[in-house]
């Protein structure tokens, strides 16, 4: 071994201090806290839909939000795990969850195109508001995941970007969705899924450069 490496090892050894090891639960707690903050912000700005608590929401409302929850949890879990690297790690759960959610817009579009007046059905009055508010609701969760990844040692930057975007988009849309007054198939299947796709794309493009080390 050469003297340069010896010197380096001596230097690193001398500055060694105990460290708190990474634990998945810390990352999960961070994401949970961000989600609570998002929920509080949505309640403050939008208020929660009364029909949610009165049991008046359509079954499709629960199906969509249930799938968003599964996708959000699976993706957040994958993003959290990516902060601690390891050859052989695989994260397939979010892909299956995303495929399941992807059925919704397909069903909505098939339903829409089998009727007349397609444009009016697809672009309802709340469409743009839901889209923008869902993306805004993704900010806290996305920020929490980026913070977590920056503290860690992610080596699969593109995957981390995708999963961060999908998790933030799914959880943000889910939380905002609690206040949305529209629960038909077309609206939920398109305008409560499109923000997830856009957030995923933003995550893929923006996150890698923020977590590179």
């Amino acid at each position: 071994m050469n003297k340069y490496r010896d010197n380096l090892i001596s230097g690193l050894t001398n500055e060694l201090a105990p460290v708190r090891t990474f634990a998945m639960r810390d990352g999960a707690a961070l994401v949970a806290a961000a989600s609570v903050v998002t929920l509080a912000a949505v309640m403050l700005v939008e208020g929660l839909g009364a029909r949610v608590f009165q049991g008046q929401a359509a079954p499709f409302f629960w199906i969509t939000n249930g799938l968003l929850l599964l996708l959000g949890l699976a993706s957040a879990g994958a993003a959290i795990a990516l902060a601690s690297p390891g050859v052989g790690s695989r994260h397939d759960a979010p892909k299956w969850a995303a495929a399941m959610l992807g059925v919704l817009p397909l069903a909505a579009l098939i339903s829409v195109f089998s009727r007349v007046g397609t444009g009016e059905i697809v672009f309802d009055l709340s469409a743009l508001h839901c889209f923008v508010a869902s993306l805004a609701s993704a900010l806290f969760t996305g920020g929490a995941l980026i913070l977590w990844l920056r503290r860690g040692a992610p080596v699969s930057l593109e995957s981390a970007g995708w999963f961060t975007g999908i998790a933030a988009g799914a959880l943000g849309t889910l939380i905002y969705g609690m206040s949305c007054p529209i629960d038909n198939l077309t609206h939920m299947g398109i305008w409560h899924v499109a923000p997830v796709a856009v957030a995923a794309l933003i995550g893929r493009l923006a996150v890698p450069s923020l977590i590179r080390w």
Partner: peptide, 11 residues
């Protein structure tokens, strides 16, 4: 080795 040192908490 320096990366190992900087990221040792992630093991």
């Amino acid at each position: 080795l320096m990366a190992l040192h900087a990221k040792r908490n992630t093991y």
